[in-house]
Amino acid sequence: MARAVMYDNIRRAGTVLASSALALPLMAMVAPGARAEGMPQLDFGNPYVIGQVVWGAGIFLVLYLLLSRSALPKVEKVLSLRRQTIETDLGIAHKAKTRADEAVADLHEARRKALADAQANVDKVVEEARLAAARQAEEMNARLATEIQDAETRIAQARGQALASVREISTTTAETLIHQLSGIAAPADFVTAKVGSAAAARGL
């Protein structure tokens, strides 16, 4: 929309300029007596023509002196101040960056050291735990061995007691069976000897 308006304005301006150009011959007809009655600039007899040169030299000299001694050094001073400020700020920024880099390096080093310490602590704790577990297992094994040994002793005792009673029970059982089957009371020595030999044959 705006572009269309712009093109329209350009077209209108072009139309006006073209019509103006077409009007030029008419203007020339209107002003047939256009003339130049000598150039005043070349009238060196006019004291003002040379006077302006003298005045111009003085004004130019004063302008040059004021510019070179006062105005331009003032600009230069501001520009150099700006350069110095920028350089100083850049220097401060560089120093800050260096300090920040150093701090980052220190941080990384501290982090690395902390990691190493932590790993060492973890290893130490793990080792201690491992040793404690091993010690506990050893103690438990020893205790279990003792308990097993005690149990085995008790079992052996009970077995011994039981085996010791087997001959007596067998003798009593044999006498009872003989008596009930035959109605005869077998001699106790005979039964005891037979049971003893049978038990010995069986490893009892």
Binding site: Y48, Q52, W55, G56, I59, L67, A71, L72, K74
Partner: peptide, 20 residues
Amino acid sequence: RFSQSPMMMIVAAIVVLAFL
């Protein structure tokens, strides 16, 4: 012999100096 030409030179000088 002070015409409008040196007067405008002074004005020009003042403008330049004032600008700076």
